[in-house]
Amino acid sequence: MAGPDFDAEIKQLQATLSSIEKVLDLDAMREEIAALGEQVAAPDLWDDQANATRVTGRLSALQGELERFTGLHSRVEDLGVLVELAEEEGDADSLAEAETELGRLTKSVEALEVRTLLSGEYDEREALITIRSGAGGVDAADFAEMLLRMYTRWAEQHKYPVEVFDTSYAEEAGLKSATFAVHAPYAYGTLSVEGGTHRLVRISPFDNQGRRQTSFAAVEVVPVLEQTDDIDIPDEEVRVDVYRSSGPGGQSVNTTDSAVRLTHIPTGTVVSCQNEKSQLQNKASAMVILKAKLLALKKAEERAQLDALRGDATSSWGDQMRNYVLNPYQMVKDLRTGYEVGNPQSVFDGDIDGFIEAGIRWRREAEKADAN
């Protein structure tokens, strides 16, 4: 069987990287990295912890993005050198190594190319994700915790900082809900395709008769707001409740009423935060979440398309967007794109890039179809 046309394949990779470079605007990225570096070096940076966390998180994420691109660019150049030397010397082993590297590079460049498809109004923002257990009792609560671990593992693999704002534990096991932020450029555009209802089928570890159980969890993704966003919430429209933070099994993890719950009276939107030590910090974080969710509602009303920012997250039969099947066979399948893998454990360990990339491409095609 003939091997790949290395010359044509490498030229295609270089052309794709050139297109990606224009979209990413690496010069602007380097300028922002330099400016953030100066802020990080300031001796008073940590006087404002919230700002310090934002600055250091943004710097880390941008550096990671730049290293990702430059690393791929270097690997493509190295591949060209490897192929040239191998062909000159008739080295079959080196050519086989080059073919393997070509496959890995093609996959990595395609993954980076997906970034160029993120052109929505808020796609470049950081993301706020809320996971809620749905139908399925304790299995659903356990599934919600599995999804939280999946997304945090994914973020860790990409070196994206994660900030957990609130975790509401179920009585027996797992989570009723959790809200967290992923601090990275384009985190919202990337993760917004994860919004919707996720369905798990497995032999329940909580059923002493070993029966198969179907459970659901809802994932909601909204963009983090910036100060320039026009979301004004009058004080009289927000009810503030304070309570003690709680951990697994309902145990109290704080001796003071530091946890905060905010209710936006006109819309009934409720958010809470209990992961900071002080009531003021929790209130500030809860307000960030509330504004983000109200922005999602505002934009949804303007466009009459709720799914555009929030996803269909009713968490029950008939509306799931992805199935995770552990029994009677092993499969994770996205019902919108048809993308599937036969190793659920790798997915729960954070290997979800394939699903995200397929979702972004699917969404772009759907937008094109709608435009026509």
Rank of each mutant, 00 (worst) to 15 (best):
D7Q: 15
Q12P: 04
L13V: 01
I20W: 01
V23M: 03
A34E: 13
A42R: 10
A42L: 05
D44E: 14
W46S: 13
A52I: 08
Q63C: 14
E65L: 09
H73R: 10
H73Y: 03
H73N: 08
D78T: 09
E87T: 05
E89W: 12
A92Q: 15
S94K: 15
L95F: 01
E99D: 11
T100A: 14
L105Q: 06
E110N: 06
L117I: 00
L118R: 07
E124N: 03
R125S: 07
I129N: 12
I129D: 11
T130I: 04
G136L: 07
A141Y: 02
D142N: 12
Y151E: 06
Q157A: 06
K159Q: 09
V164S: 04
D166W: 05
A173W: 07
A173K: 12
S177L: 08
T179H: 04
A181Q: 14
H183S: 13
A187H: 08
H198L: 12
R199F: 06
Q209S: 15
G210M: 02
A218S: 15
E220P: 01
V224G: 02
L225Q: 04
L225R: 05
P234W: 00
V238G: 06
R244Q: 14
G250L: 07
A259V: 02
R261K: 11
I265W: 06
P266C: 14
A286D: 05
I289P: 03
I289K: 01
L297N: 06
K298D: 13
A300K: 09
L306F: 14
A308S: 14
L309F: 09
D312T: 15
A313R: 00
D334S: 05
Y339D: 05
E340S: 14
G342F: 07
Q345S: 11
S346R: 03
F355S: 08
A358K: 04
I360V: 15
R363G: 03
A366Q: 09
E367P: 03
